[in-house]
Simulated assay, not measured.
Amino acid sequence: MTAVRGGRAHDEERARVAAFRGSLELDSLVDIHTHFMPDRVLAKVWAYFDAAGPLVGRRWPIAYREEEQRRLELLRGFGVRAFTSLLYPHKPGMARWLNDWAADFSARTPDCLHSATFFAEPAALADVGRALSQGARLFKCHVQVGGFDPGDPLLDAVWGLLADTGTPVVTHCGSGPVAGAFTGPGPIAALLARHPGLRLVVAHLGMPEYEEFLGLAERHEHVMLDTTMAFTPFSEAAAPFPPAALPRLADLRERVLLGTDFPNIPYSYAEALEALEATGLGARWLRAVCHDNAARLFSL
């Protein structure tokens, strides 16, 4: 796999994505797992991937190492009508200023779903309340990078507020690519036992604990999953999705959402979509996942 480069490559990729959309009779896509960040934060994230840091564990070339405006042009060129600016702090004291940046970004980028984040710290409830008052429509919780227990008492009121307001939370809680102290289905099952109304979106289909997180979605009607990186050759090499679980994923059609991790992926956007198509789950499932479910969730 090579990083995407150059005008001709982008033109060819736009054509591949257009063909994918055309086969589904979709004018557009909705991608709920994309990343836009302050330049200096994104540079540090890219440097971490370049170095195959401990939470990455393998070579990970960034396919879309472009400046912000160019990345926006690329997404829009793929026909993505709505996307996110998912941010995540790795230490206390970061969440509020990240959220302020995200509020400004969404104000100047109308097709971005206003995103926010939080950390397990005493200021968490105030930070989340402030972000909601600014118009945040979804949150990102990165259990692996944050290194905190989602069941930390400092977050109990946060989860309660997000459940009460019906605000979706895209949560990296699976143990891929490298397990953390609080990743895996156990802490999330305990969280849902306390907050069963929480609109939790399990990122990466819960990779690699796919079946356990499918089980949580089957038991909790408000739990959803996103497809970020799932089924791509890059992910299948390390954490293959069990073929026997595909019928369960098919049955959850209305609670699976398209995610890609753009721009921080080591392959093309078209490849991510084609990998979903290769599951054989069919056009009805793909239309729901790639557009209709998120359009309904966010009233687009």
Results as ranks from 00 to 15, higher is better:
274 E>M: 09
232 T>F: 05
21 R>C: 12
12 E>K: 08
9 A>P: 04
24 L>M: 08
47 A>E: 14
251 D>S: 15
217 A>I: 07
166 G>H: 07
234 F>V: 03
108 R>E: 13
299 S>W: 06
11 D>Q: 14
178 V>W: 09
8 R>M: 07
164 D>K: 03
94 M>I: 00
9 A>I: 04
70 R>W: 11
173 C>W: 04
167 T>L: 04
221 E>G: 15
141 C>P: 02
298 F>M: 01
14 R>H: 12
13 E>Q: 14
3 A>E: 11
33 H>F: 12
2 T>M: 08
38 P>S: 03
202 V>S: 04
82 A>P: 06
181 A>I: 09
228 T>P: 00
104 D>H: 11
118 F>L: 09
254 E>K: 02
133 S>E: 15
265 I>G: 07
159 W>K: 00
82 A>Q: 13
278 A>C: 11
118 F>V: 04
28 S>D: 14
123 A>H: 08
85 S>A: 15
142 H>R: 12
106 S>L: 09
88 Y>G: 09
194 R>N: 09
82 A>R: 15
142 H>D: 13
188 I>H: 02
14 R>K: 12
75 L>K: 03
2 T>I: 06
107 A>I: 04
75 L>S: 04
61 P>M: 01
61 P>R: 00
169 V>H: 00
24 L>D: 08
224 M>Y: 11
4 V>K: 06
136 A>D: 02
206 G>R: 10
69 Q>E: 15
296 R>K: 13
80 V>S: 01
19 A>T: 05
25 E>P: 06
201 V>N: 10
209 E>H: 10
162 L>A: 08
99 N>G: 07
18 A>N: 08
68 E>R: 15
108 R>Q: 13
8 R>N: 05
7 G>K: 12
5 R>E: 14
296 R>Y: 02
2 T>A: 05
107 A>G: 06
70 R>K: 14
208 P>L: 07
240 P>Q: 10
271 E>R: 09
246 L>N: 11
66 E>T: 05
137 R>K: 15
294 A>P: 05
228 T>G: 00
181 A>T: 14
221 E>L: 12
17 V>Q: 11
28 S>L: 07
126 A>L: 10
237 A>F: 06
72 L>A: 14
155 L>M: 05
258 L>E: 09
104 D>A: 15
284 R>M: 05
77 G>E: 14
295 A>F: 03
4 V>F: 11
186 G>S: 05
223 V>R: 03
256 V>K: 00
272 A>Y: 07
